[in-house]
Every structure is written in structure tokens, then in C-alpha cells.
Computed example of a mutant assay.
Amino acid sequence: MSTTQNERLRGLLEPLVSARHLDLEDIEVSRAGRRRVLRVIVDSDAGVELDACAELSRAISDTLDETDAMGDGEYVLEVSSPGADRPLTEHRHFVRATGRLVKLHLHDGAAVVARVLDVDDEGLDLEVPGLKGRKPTTRRVEFPEIAKARVEIEFSRKDQKEEEA
């Protein structure tokens, strides 16, 4: 998708998304055979419910039908949340990951798997699990040190265990 089309779509869709107290995370146009697929990824601090995606999808569809933003050809519209394995790239992504286990790849080549304890404007406070029976340690990582970051999928998260106890 051209930058101009991306900017135009973002300008058109951002108010619709914001009006529903959601964040517009990404817009992607790709090919699927003869059709194009428009993927709109939204999120919020509280997550995104299926009903919210359906309502937003109808609003986006109506708006796109009133404009020529997608051109004359057929397209499929998909509105969804980013999924658990999406990259953490924005400050708000790290804030939403507080309490979660994350894997950070640092610019110095190191990889760190740790739980996010706190996030501020400069970086993260982490709890690094202890190895071989040792106690966990805390570590500070500044945002400029992070090359890539993702939430690690946990089937039994620490905060869920504490709530159940």
C-alpha cells in the first residue's frame, strides 16, 4: 500500500476508532487472489471485545462505501485485535504488558525473558526469574536498549495464580 493511501486510510479511520475509545494500531492492505484485503488492527488498555470489532467493522464499511479510499476493486475488510504475539513497539504496548512475561532482544545482542513490573517514560523495571532455585532479581532496561520485544505466551500466568490463592 502506498504511503499516500495508508495516510488517507489512517486519516479516515482514526476518528472512527478513537470515537470507540480504541487505538488504531495498524492498517494493512494486501492481495488475496483478485481481491484486496484491508486489515484494521485496534486495541485498548482493556482489550477489544468481539462486539466492538463487529460494530467498528460496520462503521468502517459504511465510511469506505461513501469514499473512494479503497478504489473501485473488490476488497475484504477485517477488523481485529493485534493478538498475543504481536511486537511491543509503542510505550502503551509496554504499559499494557505490565505483569506479563516478555522477551526482549537488546541492541547489544542479549535476550532477556522477564516479567514487566513497571513502565515509565524512560524504560521498564523487570523481574528476571532466578535460575536453578535462585531468587528472582530486578533489572532496569531503558527503551533505547530494546531492539525487539514480544509478550511470551503463558498458560498459567503468575498474576492469575495469585488471584486464585
Rank of each mutant, 00 (worst) to 15 (best):
D85E: 12
H93L: 04
H105L: 12
V112M: 09
K103L: 14
E74H: 09
L88F: 10
F94S: 01
V116K: 06
P82F: 00
L88Q: 06
T89F: 08
R100W: 08
V113F: 08
R92P: 00
G83A: 01
K103E: 06
H107S: 09
E78M: 10
D108N: 12
L77T: 09
V113R: 15
H105A: 14
A84Y: 06
E78G: 10
A84G: 10
A114S: 03
E74L: 14
L101H: 05
Y75G: 08
H105P: 00
L88V: 00
V76K: 12
R86H: 03
T89E: 15
P87D: 10
V112K: 13
V76P: 04
E90S: 06
V76N: 14
V102E: 01
D108R: 10
L104N: 11
R115Q: 11
L104W: 07
A110C: 07
V95D: 07
H107N: 14
Y75A: 04
H91P: 06
V102L: 09
V76S: 15
K103A: 11
F94V: 00
V116S: 03
S81L: 04
T89I: 08
R100K: 15
D85W: 00
A97S: 13
L77F: 08
L101M: 15
H107W: 11
V112Q: 10
V79T: 07
V102R: 13
L104E: 09
G99C: 03
E74I: 02
D108W: 05
H93R: 02
E74N: 14
R100S: 14
R115K: 03
H107M: 08
Y75W: 12
L106N: 01
V116M: 07
S80G: 09
T98A: 08
L106M: 07
A114V: 05
R86K: 09
G109W: 06
F94N: 03
V102C: 08
A111N: 07
P82N: 06
L106T: 01
E74G: 15
R92E: 07
P87G: 04
A111W: 10
V116P: 01
V102W: 07
V95N: 05
E78Y: 01
L106D: 07
V102I: 10
V113C: 13
T98H: 05
V79R: 00
R100T: 12
T89G: 13
A110D: 14
G109I: 06
A110W: 03
R86W: 02
T98S: 09
H107C: 12
V79N: 00
L77W: 10
L104T: 10
A111M: 04
V116R: 10
G83N: 10
A111V: 14
T89V: 13
L104V: 03
V113D: 03
V112R: 13
G99I: 08
V76H: 14
L77H: 04
H93P: 06
L104G: 02
L101V: 14
D108G: 12
P82S: 02
L106E: 06
